[in-house]
Structures are given as C-alpha cells and as structure tokens.
Design a protein around this nucleic acid. Structure first.
Ligand SMILES: [Zn+2]
Ligand SMILES: [Zn+2]
Ligand SMILES: [Zn+2]
Ligand SMILES: [Zn+2]
Lengths: 132, 132
DNA sequence: GTCTTATTGAGAATGTTTGTCAATAAGCCC
DNA sequence: GGGCTTATTGACAAACATTCTCAATAAGAC
C-alpha cells in the first residue's frame, strides 16, 4: 500500500491575497466586500475562490466568523485561540475580549442541564467612542 | 387634531395560526418549517405571511430569533423578557437560561472600552441528554 | 521538463428572504 | 345587517448571499 497523496493543500497567490486582505481589514468583513477590495487593488480573483478560502481559514482557526443582521457571514483575521468580540455597530471596529470565567460558566450551564459537547456564541455590540 | 387611525393592527386568522404553530413547536423553527407545518394541517397561508408575522412577533418581543448555521433565521415563542438559550444541536430542544451576572458583565465590558448602547448575543449549544 | 491533480474562475443553480400588487377581509360607523 | 376604508393577504417575481459545476489552469513532486 502506497502513501495516499490525496488531501494535500497547495499554496496559491489567491489564498495569499485573501489572507493578506483579511489582515488589512479593520473589523469584520464579508466575502463580497473582500472580493471588491481585491478587485479594486487589481486582482482578478474569483468570488467563489474568496468564499472557499475564507471558509477554509475559518475551519483552520485562522479566521473568526460571525453572522451579521442582514444574513451574511462576516470574517476577521484572528491570532489567538478562543476569544470573543466587542463590535461597534457603526464602524465595525472590533476588540477582542477574553473571559475565562465566562467560558467556565457556559460549559457549567450545559453540563448542569445534561448537555454534552458544549459550545457557545457570545458577542457584545455597542457604539464605540469614536462613533458617539 | 383627530386621533390618527393609521398604524393600527388587525387580528387575522393567519396571525393566530402562526402564533399557535410557533407555540406548539418544541424548539427553534424556521419560517419555511412553520409554513410547511401549517400547510400540513390544512392551512392555505402564504409563505410571505409567515415571514411577515414572525418578523412582527420578534419586534414585539413575543418571539426570540436566532441565526442558524445554514443561514436561516429561526424563531421561538418566548414569554419572559430578556434571557438566553441552551440549544440541542441535534433535536433543537431549547432551555431558557437566566444569568443576571452575565448581563452585568457584558454591559460592564462595553462601558470599560468606551462603547455605549451595549447589547449582546449569547447562546449555548450542546447535545441534550436524550440525544446522546 | 513532465505528470498528476488540487485549484481556479465564470457562470449557472440553489435557497432564503424581501418586494410587488391586485384581491380580500377586519374593524368601524351607520 | 350593510357599506367603507385600508391593513392584510397570497401568488409570484425579484434580490440576495452562497454553493455547485466543470473545463482550464498551475502547484508541487519526480
Ligand atoms: Zn465605531
Ligand atoms: Zn468562549
Ligand atoms: Zn436533543
Ligand atoms: Zn442577556
């Protein structure tokens, strides 16, 4: 039996471009927005590729994803592992929040009620100082 | 100046049907699901009407809404005012969670960072005892 | 360079949600 | 009860984000 060669990932300029553009963005951005930005910078990247790359980044833990009010998925480059966000409803400015107590509380609540494999969605919104 | 007659709401069998069907549902359901259920019970209600009624209920605070993973909005009948949910990823079973400390913590975090008009999204997911 | 095959991009297809608009019927006054 | 006003309805058509399809391309290995 030979070692299967399937499942390998390839490095392409498109993926690098998406990664870079996501890093430049200030807050959460949608795939459509990122695609526009890339095209404005001269890239000919396809929309589907942006979607695919962002989804991959989210799975790999290199990006955080979030559902906006108008039914679109927003992405943001993230370095640290597990954390939450404080997001400005006006300008999209995003601050990372860490709360060890909160994590424990959420898992605790799930266990108390007999739920296994706990996970949670926690986001805080508001209007940032600059946007008041 | 006469009392304006605009803006009044009318009670229709369709609204009552949606309200009732939402009350019967065990956990969170989508507008499409609810529409199917209603049709299965013999109703000829239109899909748009289900969407409109659910949106109204959510605004009026009579229903809680939530974004599912597959980009659809889920609704649930709710009685008490502000609370959060513990939701089974398998069967949709939903328990209501109250945590006064949590509310204060979220608002506190926002204020500390200079954010006004704080709000938050907090949901806990897991696999319920029956679904293990 | 050659070969294999993951990846790309253009467009079609999907699925949810919203808009349009003529027809209907709630609430109200008589 | 019989009419009037207009909010509401339902069938259908957009609008919208996202996924799928597939021939063409190019990354990585030898
Ligand atoms: Zn701001
Ligand atoms: Zn957490
Ligand atoms: Zn369950
Ligand atoms: Zn709360």
């Amino acid at each position: 039996m030979t070692t299967p060669k399937t499942g390998s990932k390839r490095n392409t300029p498109q993926k690098a471009a998406v990664k870079h553009a996501l890093g430049e963005a200030k807050g959460f951005v949608s795939a459509q927005q990122l695609h526009q930005t890339l095209k404005n910078h001269g890239s000919t990247i396809g929309l589907a590729t942006v979607y695919r790359t962002l989804a991959d980044l989210a799975v790999a833990g290199e990006a955080d994803s979030l559902q906006s009010k108008d039914s679109e998925v927003l992405y943001r480059a993230c370095t640290t592992s597990h954390h939450h966000h404080l997001i400005c409803r006006e300008c999209g400015l995003t601050l990372e929040i860490e709360a060890e107590k909160l994590e424990k509380w959420a898992d605790q609540v799930a266990k108390e009620r007999g739920f296994s494999q706990p996970s949670h969605n926690i986001d805080i919104f508001g209007i940032c100082a600059a946007c008041q």
